[in-house]
Simulated assay, not measured.
Amino acid sequence: MVQKVYDVKGMTCDHCVQAVSSELNGLPGVEDVQVDLPSGQVTVTSEQQLDSAAVAAAVDVAGYELAGGESQ
């Protein structure tokens, strides 16, 4: 398993959390998505390394933006 933390800009409420979680959970190989709303950090657990462009695209579809890619 691979776990990565991403910074996402623009999330302000539970609806934001659900939108981002739903899109990221739709990526192939994603096992779990945890969102910390106050910090804007999203932890994605996947079977293997995810393509950062795919993660950015999923966040974009949800209506938000990755802030500089991975934070860890």
Rank of each mutant, 00 (worst) to 15 (best):
D51R: 08
G29L: 04
S39A: 10
S52W: 05
D7H: 15
L27K: 04
C13D: 09
D51F: 00
V59M: 02
G69A: 10
A56H: 03
Y6L: 08
V17D: 09
V59E: 04
L66N: 09
C16I: 08
S21I: 02
G26R: 03
Q49A: 15
H15P: 08
S52K: 13
G40Y: 07
M11C: 05
S52P: 10
V55N: 01
D36C: 08
S22P: 06
P38F: 06
G63H: 07
S22A: 13
V33D: 02
Y6D: 06
Q48V: 07
A56G: 01
P38D: 05
E31I: 10
C16N: 12
A19E: 13
C13R: 00
A62G: 10
A56P: 06
C13L: 06
V61R: 13
N25C: 08
Q41T: 11
Q49E: 15
A62S: 09
T12S: 15
G10N: 07
N25Y: 04
C13H: 03
A67Y: 11
P28I: 07
P28G: 11
M11G: 02
V61E: 09
V8S: 05
M1D: 10
Y64T: 08
K9G: 15
D7F: 02
G68S: 01
P38H: 06
V59L: 08
A19P: 00
E65I: 10
N25L: 15
T43P: 12
A67M: 14
E65V: 12
S46F: 03
D7C: 15
D60L: 12
L66W: 05
K4R: 15
M1Y: 07
T43G: 09
E70L: 15
D32T: 13
S39P: 05
A56M: 06
S71F: 11
L27V: 01
G63L: 06
A67T: 12
V44N: 07
A56R: 08
Q3M: 12
V2E: 12
E31W: 07
V44Q: 02
V44T: 06
A19D: 09
G69I: 02
G68F: 08
E47T: 15
H15N: 13
A62V: 01
M11R: 01
Q41F: 10
V30I: 03
A56K: 10
D60K: 15
K4P: 04
V17P: 00
Q18F: 11
V61Q: 11
V30P: 05
M11P: 01
L27F: 01
V61L: 09
D14T: 14
Q34Y: 00
N25F: 10
A53W: 04
V17A: 04
L24T: 03
D7I: 03
L24G: 03
K4C: 12
A57S: 13
Q41C: 00
N25R: 14
A53K: 14
A56T: 09
